[in-house]
């Protein structure tokens, strides 16, 4: 069953991963012609025009965009976080409910397997693809960085795995929510809403002290890129919370799915 799950979800994995890979390839190719010794000072002056809060929101206050690596640390990882988040959410919202929406669950349920078996196959498939996406994008960017110049390898390694700490909870959260519905259409809107609202709340929480409390309402707090850039280490407490949330919603999904009416 896992083999089939991997097969049917392989195409969308390739598409989403290709989007990220092509984006970074494009930026890596054109970056040297945009940013060079002649205009870097002009760029720095231009950046000063932006309010500090905005720069902070994109980590531009602690990292310069004077190189491909600099761009990757700031804007680049915004794309990685958002795209892996969207992919993980869509996957989570789709994997279980699709069987009900397509009515294939009636067949699947008649097989000599438990509901836990069905769910586990879906969770393992989703986790494999999310991890694989992060790893593949990480390796691809590593190659691009090696070709483009010097960079902090340890910092990059930690940065490249950080999206996992937002994507995995988003995947399992959406999987859990999908146990309350039978239609993929309903879930798609909800899952995209969760990603973008989460990201928006995270940006707002970085802007000033008044909005700082919003960080407690977004999973993107757990993918703390800022901490990795400044301290060259993962924020262990956030990693633990991320894993706990994933585990909690994972258990919730098993409980809910076992009680769910499938048609």
């Amino acid at each position: 069953m896992l083999k089939r799950e991997l097969k049917i979800n392989g195409k969308s994995f390739m598409i989403w991963t290709s989007i990220l890979v092509l984006l970074f390839l494009l930026v890596a190719l054109i970056y040297p012609s945009i940013i060079n010794h002649d205009n870097i000072q002009m760029m720095d002056e231009f950046m000063k025009l932006f309010p500090e809060e905005i720069l902070k929101a994109f980590n531009m206050d602690i990292s310069s965009i004077d190189s491909f690596y600099g761009w990757l640390k700031t804007e680049g990882f915004v794309f990685v976080l958002l795209i892996t988040g969207v992919y993980a959410s869509i996957l989570g919202s789709n994997l279980l409910v699709k069987e009900e929406d397509d009515k294939t669950i009636e067949y699947l349920n008649s097989l000599p397997i438990t509901r836990n078996h069905i769910l586990s196959s879906k969770i393992v498939c989703g986790t494999i693809y999310i991890v694989l996406m992060v790893v593949m994008v990480g390796i691809f960017n590593y190659i691009l960085l090696r070709l483009s110049g010097d960079f902090n390898e340890k910092q990059y390694l930690l940065l490249s795995i950080t999206p996992l700490f937002s994507s995995l909870p988003l995947f399992v959260l959406n999987l859990f929510l999908s146990t309350f519905t039978h239609k993929t259409k309903k879930m798609l809107g909800i899952s995209l809403g969760i990603v973008f609202i989460s990201y928006f709340l995270q940006i707002l929480s970085e802007i000033n002290e008044v909005t700082e409390f919003l960080k407690y309402f977004t999973v993107y707090t757990l993918a703390n890129i800022r901490h990795v850039i400044t301290n060259v280490e993962l924020q262990v407490s956030f990693v633990v919370i991320s894993l706990l949330i994933t585990l909690l919603f994972g258990i919730g999904t098993y409980i809910r799915y076992n009680k769910k009416e499938l048609v």
Partner: peptide, 23 residues
């Protein structure tokens, strides 16, 4: 029980409308 796979193996089920994996 819904998770009794030994008994499930002894059942053949044909629903009124067949929905299978179209791919």
């Amino acid at each position: 029980d819904k998770d009794d796979i030994v008994l499930k193996e002894e059942i053949g089920y044909l629903p009124s409308e067949i929905f299978l994996y179209e791919d």
